[in-house]
Design a protein around this nucleic acid. Structure first.
Length: 229
DNA sequence: GACCAGGCACATC
DNA sequence: GATGTGCATGGT
């Protein structure tokens, strides 16, 4: 006898179906585009309210100065650091935030990002959130993409796409959406990684420009019917 | 020239 | 607790 499907199971199935449709249509996204976990954290701070193309230039500047470790970044003079990250915008603000993160990582783990892979997750996340300039989305990006922890980055794109497809309410908050996804998906960082990246890709394109997504290919994929006409 | 981009902190109501 | 605003560059 088949086990009874709970509402929990149905949501899970729907999310996994969405994931399957996204992978089939868009393929693996290869996130996070960084050469080291510390670079992930730097990128997560620099990309706050900023296009990734701008962040890439700032990271290239930091890389050129061999400043992509906590110790090297912390050793930079502030005007130098500000100059390097200027292409990413809000450079004075972000220089402070990068410094604060590097100082925390040095003080707490001798600058070693690998330590984030072993710490108790809930306490570690609280610690990150206490670093000035690290909010929920930045903390979760660092934990998922920089440390491989099973935390969902419940950003505006995730909310937009999931709401457009009536999987979550339109006005769901960050923490609420994160809890929803983490409790309705297998706790697999690779799945969180790929699904989030795909939601961003789709959220940037048609799900941003089409208010109801009624004719969007993804909608047909989810209904199990091929798009016609 | 307006608007947006892989947010956050702080002030105000 | 919700809403508004500063931060600031670069692409469309």
């Amino acid at each position: 006898m088949a086990p009874v499907k709970t509402p929990q199971d149905l949501v899970k199935r729907r999310l996994l179906r969405l994931y399957g449709a996204l992978v089939a249509r868009h393929g693996p996204q290869g996130w996070w585009p960084a050469r080291s976990p510390f670079e992930v954290a730097v990128g997560a701070i620099l990309t706050q309210h900023t296009a990734w193309t701008s962040v890439e230039r700032a990271i290239a500047n930091l890389s050129g100065d061999r400043a992509l470790t906590a110790a090297r970044l912390a050793a930079l003079a502030t005007p130098r650091l500000e100059g390097l990250i200027r292409p990413a915008g809000t450079y004075r603000l972000k220089a402070r935030r990068l410094r604060a993160f590097a100082a925390w990582l040095l003080a707490r783990f001798q600058g070693r990002m690998a330590a984030l892979e072993r710490e108790p997750l809930a306490a570690l996340r609280r610690e990150l959130l206490a670093v000035p300039g690290i909010g929920p989305e930045t903390a979760d990006s660092i934990l998922l993409y920089g440390a491989g922890r099973p935390v969902f980055v419940a950003d505006v794109y995730s909310r937009r796409v999931l709401a457009r497809h009536r999987i979550v309410p339109q006005r769901i908050g960050y923490e609420e959406l994160r809890g929803f996804l983490e409790s309705h998906l297998p706790g697999d960082p690779r799945l969180f990684n790929e699904l989030h990246a795909l939601l961003v890709a789709v959220g940037k394109s048609h799900c941003r420009t089409r208010p109801r997504c009624d004719g969007c290919p993804l909608r047909w994929d989810l209904r199990g019917r091929p798009p016609r006409g």
